[in-house]
Structures are given as structure tokens and as C-alpha cells.
């Protein structure tokens, strides 16, 4: 095995990890505030991929503008889902919201299949994104670097927002203690909606990246990456943004290296590996790598 091979596998792992990280942030933010595992999150990722296809291939928007459109489309769908499905059942047992999110996922997937068919589509990227750049002993595509950089920039912006603005402080307060935050005059509804909007926007951008990286998208593409991103959020520690990012990169790297370094007969066990890792992490470190132990045991 050559060093170059290992290095290119690491780059692939980082790219996959960047996408997992962006999806996982949404899971973590939403879970942090309303204790809901939003199963429809993976489908918002798919919505983002199709918004990107529409704005790049059909509307021929320049790439940075397309990113903006995708962010807005994701935020809009996230807000819509929160308002229609989750807000009316606030205060119900956890499991209720979980089932509702499964229902939302099915609605989104079938709406997509009905309107744009389940046929996978090719996702063409501008030529400059496909160009190769030499990096040490290997050469990587511009798109790979763009994905990692964009993911880091968005994450940094989010962390800055949550840490240094008034609204960010209100969001942290809501996640810390819902009831007390309300007593302090924070508009809980708006904070929850904001968490959904931000989380969904980031997942949508991950959808764009997925299309750009692998060149093919379909309405049902979101299920498995969505679930894996949830695994990433758990590995990092659910509820923490930096934990989600860390978990995303760890899982992306681990998955790619699992497939790339072990003999090929194991590579088909890729998904099994990810979920086995989840179960293991939940059992050994239920609070994840950097999560706080606030969950009650009983």
C-alpha cells in the first residue's frame, strides 16, 4: 500500500466527513432543543440536492449563488415541516415526534417520487470544480477542497453566531433549559423554528455537496446518509455542535478507511460497520466524545 493511496483515501474520508458533519449539526441542534430525532432530516438533504440541480443545471446560476439558493430552500422546507408537523405536537412524549418525523420523511420522499420520479439523475458540475490540483504526492479535484472549506466556513459561522450574538445566546439558553428560558422572555417558538431552519439549510448544502462529489442524485438518496449522520451526531455527543462536526469527520474517515484498507470482501459490510459502531458507542460512551451527561438514566 502506497502513501499516496492512503493520502487520497484520507481526503475522501474528510470530504465524506464534511458532509456527515453538516447533516449531523442539524440533528444535534434540533435534538438539543426539542429532544426530537428528526428522521426527515435526510430527506431535506435530498431536497437540497435537487434545489442545487435546479439552480445549477436548469437556472444556470453561478456556483456561489446556487449555494445561497440551496441554503434558503433547505431553511424553507425545514420551517414548513416544523410548523406543519412538529409544532402542533409539542409537549407530547418523545416517541410521538419520532413517529411524526418518519411520517414526514415518507411524505417528502413520495412527493419527490411523484413529481420528479425516482430515477437517479446525473449532477454535472462546472468545469473549474472538476479540475485537478496537485497536493503533495497526489492530485485532488477542486470540488473536494471546496466541500471541506465550505463545510468549515459554515460551521465556523454557525459557532460564531451561537456563541457571540444575542439570538445565539437565547438559543443556547433554550437548549439548556426550555422552561426557564421561556420565563426569561425568550420566544421559544422562534428559537425552535430557527434551529430547524439552520439545521435544514446546512443539510441542504450537504445535499449539494453530495451531488457535486458523486455526480448522481435521487429523491431517495437521503435515507442512508441521514441515518449515518445521526450516528455521527451520537458519536460526537448529541446536542453539541462541535461534537456533531467532530463525529462527522471521525465517522467519514473511519468509513472510508474501513472500505479502503480492509480486504474487499469486507467492503460490502460498510453499512453494518457504521451501525455496529453506533451501538458500540452508545454502550461504551453514551454521551459521545464531547457530550455532556445531562440525560437522566431512568
Amino acid at each position: 500500500m502506497t502513501g499516496a493511496y492512503l493520502l487520497s483515501q484520507i481526503v475522501n474520508g474528510l470530504v465524506l466527513g464534511a458532509m456527515y458533519a453538516l447533516i449531523a449539526i442539524g440533528f444535534s441542534m434540533i435534538y438539543g432543543i426539542v429532544r426530537l430525532i428528526n428522521f426527515a432530516h435526510g430527506d431535506i438533504f435530498a431536497v437540497g440536492a435537487f434545489a442545487a440541480l435546479g439552480s445549477i443545471a436548469i437556472a444556470a446560476l453561478p456556483f456561489p449563488l446556487a449555494v445561497l439558493v440551496v441554503l434558503l430552500a433547505g431553511a424553507l422546507v425545514g420551517l414548513l415541516v416544523e410548523r406543519a408537523a412538529f409544532r402542533p405536537m409539542r409537549g407530547a412524549p418523545q416517541v410521538t415526534g419520532f413517529i411524526a418525523s418518519l411520517a414526514v420523511a415518507i411524505i417528502l420522499e413520495n412527493l419527490a417520487v411523484m413529481t420528479i420520479t425516482a430515477q437517479p439523475r446525473t449532477f454535472a458540475i462546472p468545469a473549474w470544480l472538476g479540475a485537478l490540483v496537485p497536493l503533495g504526492s497526489i492530485s485532488v479535484r477542486v470540488v473536494d477542497i471546496a466541500i471541506i472549506v465550505l463545510a468549515l466556513v459554515l460551521t465556523a459561522a454557525l459557532v460564531g453566531f451561537v456563541r457571540f450574538t444575542r439570538t445565539g445566546m437565547a438559543m443556547r439558553a433554550t437548549a439548556e433549559n426550555y422552561g426557564v428560558a421561556r420565563l426569561m422572555g425568550i420566544n421559544i417558538d422562534r428559537m425552535i423554528a430557527l434551529a430547524f431552519a439552520i439545521g435544514s439549510a446546512l443539510a441542504a448544502v450537504a445535499g449539494l455537496m453530495w451531488g457535486a462529489k458523486y455526480g448522481q442524485i435521487s429523491p431517495l438518496m437521503g435515507t442512508v446518509p441521514g441515518l449515518k449522520a445521526f450516528v455521527a451526531a451520537v458519536i460526537g455527543g448529541v446536542g453539541s455542535i462541535s461534537g456533531a462536526v467532530l463525529g462527522g469527520f471521525v465517522l467519514g474517515l473511519a468509513e472510508v478507511l474501513f472500505v479502503g484498507l480492509l480486504p474487499s470482501e469486507f467492503s460490502a459490510f460498510r453499512n453494518a460497520f457504521v451501525f455496529a459502531a453506533l451501538i458500540l458507542v452508545l454502550l461504551v460512551m453514551p454521551n459521545g466524545l464531547i457530550g455532556k451527561s445531562t440525560e437522566t438514566r431512568a
Binding site: 445521526f230 453499512n271 453494518a272 451501538i279
Partner: peptide
């Protein structure tokens, strides 16, 4: 709760693999 749900969901993938 949730964690159990996701772990059992993972079980479907593992059995399929």
C-alpha cells in the same frame, strides 16, 4: 427511547448486510 429506535433500525441494515 430514541437511541433504542435507532439501534434497532441499524439492526435492519446489519441483518441485510
Amino acid at each position: 427511547g430514541h437511541y433504542l429506535a435507532v439501534a434497532t433500525l441499524g439492526l435492519i441494515f446489519i441483518v441485510q448486510s
